[in-house]
Design a protein around this nucleic acid. Structure first.
Lengths: 195, 195
DNA sequence: GTCTATATACTGATAGAC
DNA sequence: GTCTATCAGTATATAGAC
């Protein structure tokens, strides 16, 4: 597959998204210029517009990809029986998935307000789909009599918020291993909704 | 107290901080210009610099005030006996205090990355003081034998993250009253660290 | 696809009149 | 304390050469 000089479309696109993800996460969407992203990629600012129609679409695309990956990965989990086991699986999956891509997670939460209304609506819908998955587990558990949750929706949001919190402080090589963190939060989540 | 025309120092200062709080919360620090804040206040951009040395100091001041208020309000809580009662008091206080000022809460979390290093250090110190208060409750409860927490620091961060989550969805006049929300989260927090 | 150059608009902050 | 005017820098995005 010969390449003409100055033609590295796929590679430049990948590097642009990678740089944007890192810079948006670190400094915020509004604080990062297209020039700065371009500098990280090693091209001039104008060249980025061959890979994204504008800055807003770049942000939206990063967030949408993250949410799609999240939903696909969850849907691909092996089926388990019983609400308790499903909750433990969810907690473990959530922590592991989110700790593996802290920048995408950070952006997908922090930059919601910088999405144009239509884009915001799309991302919010994907987020709600994910929340509903946990809500269903809690509802089933309540029906089975193994969980005690006065409001499954609120409980789901509470658990997700707690699990998300891991991303704000966990650093690889820190005091606790990933397995220890998973165990601690899985237990807290389980107990929080227990009868 | 007669006022010369064009001299409304205290009032303009108050309005500037109020506008900055609202605009920073809604659009983000980096996305809000001094001109836009000035427009909300009803003065020209240059006039703001009689009330703050620069934009960064304005942000820092808003965050610092919020954290001082938080710590002062918590310190003023009536003393209660027993780790369980103290935890319930903390949860109730946290939710009520944070829901009463969503914009300051939002900014104090989201705009940390836009603080200059020295300012960041100060705010982080205040935040850690608050987290330590809850950590102490959990540690005491573990010593009393009423809580089961393998790591008090991690548990405190987890509970605070869960409680903070309320701010992302609670709206006055919604499906649940403030009292119901408090009760749900207080119970989840209590159970999460129970033996 | 990337470059240079540029249009147009906005940014934080300051100077000096009143 | 607020105004007008302005400096110097930067922003997003586009046009046309290669």
């Amino acid at each position: 597959m010969p390449r003409r000089p100055g033609s590295h479309a796929a590679e430049t696109n990948r590097r642009m998204r990678e740089a944007a993800l890192r810079l948006f996460a670190r400094h915020g969407y509004a604080a990062v210029s297209m020039r700065r992203i371009a500098a990280e990629v090693g091209v001039q600012a104008g060249a980025l517009y061959s890979h994204t129609p504008d800055k807003q679409t770049l942000l939206f695309s990063l967030m949408q990809d993250h949410m799609h990956e999240l939903l696909a990965a969850r849907a691909a989990l092996p089926p388990v029986r019983g609400a308790e086991a499903r909750l433990e699986q969810f907690a473990r999956f959530h922590i592991r998935f989110h700790l593996a891509r802290p920048e995408a997670v950070f952006i997908s939460y922090m930059e919601l307000r910088n999405l144009e209304p239509e884009n915001f609506r799309v991302i919010e819908g994907l987020r709600r789909d994910y929340e509903t998955a946990l809500e269903t587990i809690l509802r089933d558990g309540a029906a089975e009599g193994v969980f005690s949750v006065p409001d499954a929706k609120i409980a789901a949001l509470g658990l997700i918020a707690m699990l998300n919190g891991v991303n704000t402080w966990y650093r690889e090589g820190g005091r606790l291993t990933l397995e220890e963190v998973e165990a601690i939060y899985r237990d807290m989540a389980r107990k929080a909704v227990a009868v």
